[in-house]
């Protein structure tokens, strides 16, 4: 697994109320640096899933961060994704 700086994680999560709290709560209590979040329901897919994109600045603890995130019950999968083609690349202009 290559580590980018900052890393971009692409999560598939259950579209439940509270799932964002579980993810954000994990990052807060383990003091992981979270620099961006984007989450929307998965269109055309199963109605109960959402895609969550996270921009994290945790080079040294990235593997630990991913394993902790994978443990969350409402998180179905966690993948690393390059900046290119990510939601954060195409939305830079909105965060100036």
């Amino acid at each position: 697994m290559t580590v980018t700086d900052p890393a971009i994680l692409k999560l598939t999560v259950n579209n439940h109320p509270g799932v964002l709290s579980h993810v954000a709560g994990l990052f807060a209590r383990r003091a992981y640096n979270l620099e961006g979040v984007m989450v929307r329901p998965v269109p055309g897919g199963p109605p109960h899933l959402s895609r969550m994109w996270l921009l994290v600045n945790e080079e040294d603890r990235l593997q630990q961060l991913i394993r902790q995130t994978e443990k969350l019950v409402d998180v179905i999968s966690v993948e690393q994704h390059p900046m290119k083609g990510s939601v954060f690349e195409s939305t830079q202009q909105y965060f100036t």
């Binding site: 109320p17 509270g18 709290s21 579980h22 709560g25 994990l26 807060a28 209590r29 969350l72 019950v73 409402d74």
Partner: peptide
């Protein structure tokens, strides 16, 4: 309560 229990449980629910 959901917010209080969130960081100290494996998982928690508010049932609707």
């Amino acid at each position: 309560t959901f917010g209080l229990m969130l960081p100290i449980t494996k998982h928690n629910w508010l049932v609707h």
